[in-house]
């Protein structure tokens, strides 16, 4: 897959023309990106702390996770949509930015982990304490990497 061609296309797209021409629109979309990040962070941290047995121990794990997973899904959709718009404004700059690729790799790993490992594993009623704790730590580490790499795109 030729990613450079995709970034060249994105850089010349309608989205790019809009995001470059209207700084105010870009700022508002960026705000929604941040708010979605906040929601995703809250869902990940609350879910992980419940899996670790630190928070909400008196509430069944399945109830807490079902709630946080729903919030996570909505936040992830918002992050991806707003992220594509924001990327269009600086598409070529991002293509050559290492931190951007760290974030994208983290995002991909995080999504595969969430939908391919965490949810199927924790939906089983007999999932043990240690696998659950490991999943919580891995989830926190992955999404921390995504958020931190996202912030460092601006510095690199």
């Amino acid at each position: 897959m030729d990613l450079l061609a995709f970034f060249n296309w994105l850089d010349a797209s309608f989205l790019a023309r809009m995001s470059k021409a209207y700084g105010g629109v870009f700022a508002v979309v960026q705000m929604f990106h941040l708010l979605a990040l906040v929601l995703l962070g809250g869902a990940v941290v609350a879910g992980a702390l419940r899996m670790l047995g630190v928070l909400l121990r008196d509430v069944p794990r399945a109830l807490v996770l079902a709630g946080t997973w729903r919030v996570f899904d909505v936040a992830l959709v918002l992050i991806v949509i707003s992220g594509i718009f924001m990327s269009s404004a600086v598409a070529m700059k991002l293509y050559y930015n290492e931190m951007f690729w760290v974030k994208m790799a983290g995002l991909l790993v995080g999504m595969v982990f969430m939908y391919g490992i965490e949810r199927p594993l924790l939906r089983r009623p007999q999932s043990g304490a240690w696998p659950t704790r490991l999943v919580a730590c891995a989830s926190l580490a992955t999404w921390f990497t995504v958020a931190a790499a996202g912030r460092w795109i601006g510095f690199s």
Binding site: V38, L39, G41, V45, A46, T68, V71, A148, R151
Partner: peptide
């Protein structure tokens, strides 16, 4: 920014 996600993430929940 990261602690913002912890604080506001919890508050928004």
């Amino acid at each position: 920014v990261l602690t913002l996600t912890v604080f506001l993430g919890m508050l928004f929940l």
